[in-house]
Amino acid sequence: NIFRVLGDFSHLASIFILLHKIQQLKSCSGISFKSQVLYMLVYITRYLDLPWTSSPYNFIFKVLFISSELYIIYLMARAYKPTNDPNLDTFHVEFLLGFAGLLALLFPYKYTILEVFWAFSIWLESVAILPQLFMLQRTGEAEAMTAHYIAALGMYRALYIPNWIYRYFSEPTHKVDTIAVTAGILQTILYSDFFWIYYTKVMRGEKFKLP
């Protein structure tokens, strides 16, 4: 459906915006390395089924997400390392890993490796933006490209919510994926404050600056 396709392309667009920002400005300042590593972990643990993916659409996106994330991490850790300031990226990710690990172990759909890792990846993704938002809060402002990146990344999961509603009514089984939906709503709520400032500042041509 249209919401899901828009969501997936928003996700892909966010990655292109981030890569464009890093290469255009020859800098990864303002980007949380910790959030990027968390996303890498999200892709690895969710796409363990990559070799068995039957849909070409999903297969291409999975490969694109994994490979582009690897490239982003390479750029931040090697090519543009001097522009990456660890002193601003101080969020304690062990809390996020503990949160996702605990929920994945307590409430997986099934106790299989694939299912537990899948649940872990869903919960981890829901909070993986926090080191990035925390960094933004410390610096108090962001380059336009960084703001566009976060907005597109947040829009992706927000668009999955109408997709789930649409699927609930259009598919005969009327099933709800409680893990994905709960985590998706949590993820979108975490972005809400950012979305508001993005809407009131950046979309009106102003700089992204916290009040």
Binding site: D8, H11, N58, Y109, W118, Y160, T173, K175, D177, A180
Partner: peptide
């Protein structure tokens, strides 16, 4: 199964 169908999402 229901959630298998949802695994078709990214």
């Amino acid at each position: 199964g229901s959630k298998e169908e949802f695994k078709d999402e990214l």
